[in-house]
């Protein structure tokens, strides 16, 4: 099926000329983002993800390559048309970036004011938006009187003010505690569902991707390492960076000895079956569970486990053979394979 592409990034390069010479922030990045989806971009700090998201609304002008948003190639637009195009994209930030000298309501009015809306109309719209982010009672508070989560809600309302088609989130939950993060993510999900806005999420936290994204791109040293549906990337990571982001930290230490390891990945169907117990009973071979983690993603359960198989070659083979017959994905390797 041909997907409706709202953002198409092709062969994007971005270099910065600094004192220390030329720094490449993006190197041949191509991505298609579909209308209505929540798309995640994950990478370590300095990987280039912030630059990438800024190229989508041309806060950064790419050195090479094209960005096409809703059929318009941004590089070909006049200055005025570019400002217009930016109004079809909302953006929220890690540090919220609210105007400190304006109330919550006035902050939300800001994008409407600069677009030339009448003050009374802007205020009416701002109140509706405060309703959406459940902060109606905070309209006249200044940002300094609001918690981080509340400030981010105001920022979301502000980003939605001009009825954007796309919402760009640059590490929007990185400055928030886990509970607040969850509530902000829930709000974003709801906005995506009810308003049909395409959301692009930049983060360094896999948990954020798992929580709300349908597809994810993994960015590693200025390049896209891997793109795919979240379940697929999560259960079968191909690139080294994906593995690094998905596998637990510090596992290398725990897996110092032993030859036979395997990683089994459960998909939604099999995670409720006692696969490991059955294997032990069937093969009469003890296994050691080195790591286990199962999660609920988008209403279905996913998870992974790392098993240390018996030292005995035949017993290990038998165990693996049994697992292959089950409805799980199995990867075999030694201790180093899973780091």
């Amino acid at each position: 099926m041909e997907q409706d592409c709202i953002v198409r990034i092709q062969n994007l390069n971005k270099t910065f000329r600094g004192r220390a010479g030329t720094v490449t922030a993006l190197d041949g990045v191509s991505l298609d983002i579909y209308r209505g989806e929540i798309f995640g971009i994950i990478g370590l700090s300095g990987a280039g993800k912030s630059t990438l998201v800024r190229c989508i609304n041309f806060l950064e002008t790419p050195t090479e390559g094209t960005v096409t948003v809703d059929g318009q190639e941004l590089g070909s637009l006049s200055k005025k048309a570019l400002l217009e195009a930016r109004r079809s994209m909302g953006m929220i930030f890690q540090q919220f970036n609210l105007l400190q000298q304006r109330t919550a309501l006035q902050n939300i009015c800001f994008p409407l004011e600069i677009a030339g809306m009448k003050k009374a109309d802007a205020e009416k719209r701002a109140r509706e938006l405060l309703e959406i982010v459940s902060l109606s009672d905070r309209a006249d508070n200044y940002p300094s009187q609001l918690s981080g989560g509340q400030q981010q809600r105001v920022a979301i309302a502000r980003a939605l003010a001009s009825n954007p088609k796309i919402l760009l989130c640059d590490e929007a939950t990185s400055a928030l505690d886990p509970t607040t993060t969850r509530s902000i993510l829930a709000l974003l999900k709801e906005i995506n569902k009810t308003l049909g806005i395409t959301i692009i999420v930049i983060t360094h936290e896999m948990a954020v991707i798992e929580e709300i994204c349908q597809r994810v791109a993994i960015i590693d040293s200025s390049r896209i390492a891997e793109v795919g549906p979240v379940e697929q990337v999560f259960t079968r990571p191909q690139s080294a960076m994906a593995k690094q982001l998905i596998y637990p930290d510090g596992k290398r230490d725990k897996l110092a000895t032993g030859k036979h390891y395997c990683r089994i990945v459960f998909d939604g169907n099999s995670s409720f079956e006692p696969v490991v117990s059955n294997m032990v009973l069937e093969c009469k071979a003890p296994v050691n569970i080195m790591f286990a983690d199962t999660k609920d993603i988008d209403g279905r359960a996913y998870g992974q486990m790392i098993l240390q198989l018996p030292e005995d070659e035949r017993a290990a083979k038998r165990a693996l053979a049994y697992l292959e017959t089950q409805n799980v994905h199995v990867e075999e390797g030694d201790a180093d394979a899973f780091t």
């Binding site: 609304n57 806060l59 400002l83 217009e84 195009a85 930016r86 109004r87 994209m89 909302g90 953006m91 930030f93 540090q95 970036n97 609210l98 105007l99 400190q100 800001f110 994008p111 004011e113 600069i114 677009a115 920022a155 502000r158 001009s162 760009l168």
Partner: peptide, 19 residues
């Protein structure tokens, strides 16, 4: 960041200065 936020909303340099 505040300036960048205004730019992301399509503010002109003149609007950024005075608003």
């Amino acid at each position: 960041g505040v300036i960048e936020a205004a730019q992301s909303m399509g503010a002109t340099p003149w609007q950024i200065v005075w608003k």
